[in-house]
Nucleic acid binder design. Structure first.
Lengths: 212, 212, 212, 212
DNA sequence: CATGAATGAGCTTTCATTCAT
DNA sequence: GATGAATGAAAGCTCATTCAT
């Protein structure tokens, strides 16, 4: 019988990452409450007390996962964008990077989007911070685009806020769509959203609105 | 201390609704796993065995909640729309009805949007049916709008599907936004989305696309 | 839809028998603890409170079943036997009646033999009474046979008691065997036991014993 | 008040035996359904979760008890018998070992004889295997005795099967009798049964039968 | 550093039993 | 006489968490 040979004596940082990899996978697939520490420890290839020694509690472990995945997602988007480009190109690059990242790490995306937001304040707040950051970035781009177009007095802040919410929500929905239907590529999702959003924004910036 | 005076001897149908009201509230706020049947029974003002007698199990109770809330939401949107109007008016009315409904029943919306989709197949499938229905309705409107504009060969099905996903995702996001920030009215959310979406759709229908 | 039309207004005695018929069936098949009052009431075609009105509690209901079935079994054996016959004929008739009865009422037999004895004192005592009665009858027959043979000083009481235990145990085992294997008739079971037992008894009465 | 001082940190194998000791006692006295895992855990001096950790479920625990007790009983009988002896001596030794074992472990005997057979298929099947084994052994002895007597063509298989059933049933009944009345020794029970059974068998082998 | 052994607390579910009509 | 409505109490099972080695 082959004994499962656990790797012994790895540096703490590495072990911690392994545990979090396992945790993200289990949390992403089962949800926070349904995930069991037993299963996480087993998948990580360590004993349960070690998980507690390094990450203290289920709550802290989940929080750590959220933070790591949020940071990774924000970094991916940031790295995909060059501040030197015009606003529409920046949005395009950011969206592409976003869709690529969520496709590569579906469990991480599930943790952020599906799980963290549905399991009470401590976690929802954690992920809200990241979303805020992304909203701020989008808001900035919309404002920048308006400035580039400069044909027109700035859009009211409140309106821009709403538009950013809509755009981000559309992106989230398309990320789920692309994760569900494997034939949808990151580029296609990004293109769909640019086509959908950019003209509407352009119209607004030039003062054309839809009214009932 | 005020003794909670339980209403006694109510007809079954009424009790069932009370239980489901309580269940929607608890499920919406805590999530499926974190919700306890004890708490639901207490909030409903009945004993736990009665909940089981009428609704059989936690799983069936949750399913019943999903079905009721999904039916109510779809009915609200359907009732808000008149098929006689042009496509953009229909979309506007539908969105307004949608945002009004989600604002009126925040817990029901949480059950459908946040909870049902994150707690495993049986429930996700249940709510997927409703989302499909709404996606079909939106898809139809986009196609109808294209026909009304008739300047142009039909958009490819796949593209329309993506646009519908984006639009519905944006609406979901705005519903959460309006539920979080009480100063945002249903009409404002609907107007934001119409402005955001309709021009983009118009451009597409006339063959104007954004390309990198 | 055909409403299950419950017979209304039957005399109490009849209703009680229906309930006990149902109870014997359920108790015999499921066991005392696994049987539920709901199921019994449903099978009897009455509402649960009526069962309680007539039979007071699960415990009393079970006791009533035991008593009824014990009385029926004893009566069947008694009726099968004529005191005028010689002892071996009496035993033969009694055994035949016994095996016929247990084959006709397998659930009743299960209640007496399998269930009542395994569910704690109140019930075990009830059925022990009946077994005592049968043991006494068998003991009497053995003593009678010894007297008929009269070649020999009487067997010691203690020895007769053991023999009666053995004979009754063998009969119980054969009853289960016949209830399991439908090709075994009451007559065959009785013949098997007579052949097995009678010669041994005869030997003993003539002082021949097996010794190690 | 004497605080029950729990033995801490025992090796798993030992704890498992303690739990099964407790379980056999409770199951034997209360029956499968009436036994509670709480009570078993308490009697074993451990917490309930530990019982589940080691034995998985009430059903598996009961099955494990049945298997252990069945194996112990069969082993006791087997060890008591020497294949070199003549058939009647073998039967005598086997019966003595059987009655000694059931007297030593009354709860184990109750689990096998009274409880396992009355609580549904999974358990009944488990114990039926053991009974089959014993029946086969007895059947063999009867056949061997016939060969030793060799005065006569073999008894028909079906008849031997019935005789074995009767003999085993008689033994079971006497075991209960000896367990109830403490003055009855294993040797006395075995002698009673030998006297009862052996002459009848001998007669049959020589073609003498009882006929109505 | 690492783990086998152990538990308190809580969850879903079931059931015998009783009112109020 | 008969029943739909309702519940107290308990059972099986699971899980996050902690010692002792």
């Amino acid at each position: 019988m082959v004994e499962k040979q656990r790797q012994k004596r790895m540096p703490r940082a590495v072990r911690e990452q392994q545990m979090m990899d396992a945790a993200v996978r289990i949390f992403g697939q089962r949800g926070y409450r349904a995930a069991s520490m037993d299963e996480i420890a087993e998948l990580a290839g360590v004993s349960k007390p070690l998980v507690y020694l390094y990450l203290n509690s289920k709550e802290e472990l989940f929080t750590a996962c959220i933070r790591r995945e949020a940071a990774a997602l924000v970094a991916a988007v940031r790295d995909g964008v060059s501040a030197a480009e015009p606003a529409d190109r920046q949005l395009w690059s950011g969206l592409t990077a976003f869709f690529e990242h969520t496709a590569e790490r579906p469990d991480g995306w599930a943790v952020l989007h599906a799980q963290a937001r549905t399991h009470g304040e401590p976690f929802a707040a954690e992920v809200a911070g990241m979303r805020e950051e992304i909203l701020a970035f989008v808001t900035l781009l919309i404002a920048e685009a308006a400035r580039e177009a400069h044909r027109n007095p700035a859009l009211p802040d409140r309106e821009v806020a709403g538009l950013a919410q809509a755009l981000v929500g559309a992106a989230e929905s398309l990320a789920d769509w692309a994760n569900t239907d494997a034939t949808v590529s990151a580029k296609e999702a990004a293109a769909t959203l640019m086509n959908f959003a950019w003209a509407g924004l352009g119209d607004l910036m030039e003062g054309r609105r839809w009214t009932p």
